[in-house]
């Protein structure tokens, strides 16, 4: 598996898109810090971008890479290799290179602007960890979709729809249900609803770590009681981990049975 991972990783590292992605974050980081020297405020702005963009890029990249390297995959399948090795290797290659672009692209400007001397370091590290998780999750979901759909157009369509659902539509439904059932106590419901969507979970996790959480009022207090503790943080990270592991499991499972 490591060999395939290495191959996919270097393949992507050589590709233009990885550089573009890396440069994008590099420029973004520098511009943000140039416009606003306050590290902790830059973290807030960055959060807005990360929770929308990282899943989108992860999804599109994952689908694209799968379809593009299909011929090579078929070649590999003819070799005496385990299927899960091939697909997981490719998956980790893609997800790894995307994560590396994100971490380096944002890390370099922040370190240059004195991250280690700032107390925003914990928030920033949390942001990067969440960014990495979102990349892993959405790339895995994208691989799943691509594996289940031979038709490229359909695959792309589903992938974009998935992103749209989790980033936008889910919140819309969430909002609607909150308004419709406003007569009922909704704290546990909103807590659960947040847990079921990795994007919402990431957003809430970061918001509560920043002092903006005072805005959340009573509901925020309930949230803070849960997410604000170490246990809450561990549970949330565990849920994110679960979100990563489950699609990867399905990927391995599906790959074994698929007829090429």
């Amino acid at each position: 598996m490591l060999k395939i991972l290495k191959y996919s990783f270097y393949d992507l590292m050589r590709s233009r898109w990885s550089y573009v992605y890396f440069l994008f974050y590099l420029v973004l980081g520098f511009v943000l810090l140039f416009l606003n020297n306050d590290l902790s405020k830059a973290v807030i702005t960055l959060m807005n971008i990360i929770i929308v963009l990282v899943p989108l890029i992860g999804t599109i990249f994952g689908v694209m890479y799968y379809y593009n390297s299909k011929e090579f995959t078929e070649l590999l399948l003819a070799q005496p290799l385990k299927r899960s090795t091939i697909f997981l290797g490719q998956y980790f290659g893609v997800a790894g290179s995307l994560t590396l672009s994100l971490v380096l692209g944002l890390g370099i400007p922040f370190i240059l602007y004195g991250l280690f001397r700032s107390d925003a370091i914990f928030n920033f590290v949390l942001l990067l960890v969440i960014g990495a998780f979102l990349t892993l999750i959405f790339t895995a979901l994208a691989f799943n979709i691509a594996l289940s759909n031979e038709n490229k157009i359909k695959g792309f369509g589903y992938a974009v729809l998935l992103w749209l659902f989790l980033a936008v539509i889910y919140d819309g439904l969430f909002l609607l249900s909150l308004i419709i059932f406003e007569e009922y106590p909704l704290d546990t419901f909103s807590l659960a609803a947040t847990m079921f969507n990795p994007i919402d979970l990431s957003r809430t996790l970061i918001l509560l770590k920043l002092d903006i959480s005072a805005l959340l009022g009573y509901t925020g207090a309930v949230f803070k009681k849960f997410f604000g503790t170490d246990l809450g943080l561990i549970v949330s990270l565990a849920v994110l981990l679960l979100w990563t592991v489950l699609p990867v499991q399905r990927l391995a499972f599906k790959a074994k049975r698929k007829d090429f």
Binding site: I51, S190, L207
Partner: peptide, 8 residues
């Protein structure tokens, strides 16, 4: 308010 700063 839990949807603060969501894209939606």
């Amino acid at each position: 308010i839990v949807l603060l700063r969501s894209l939606f």
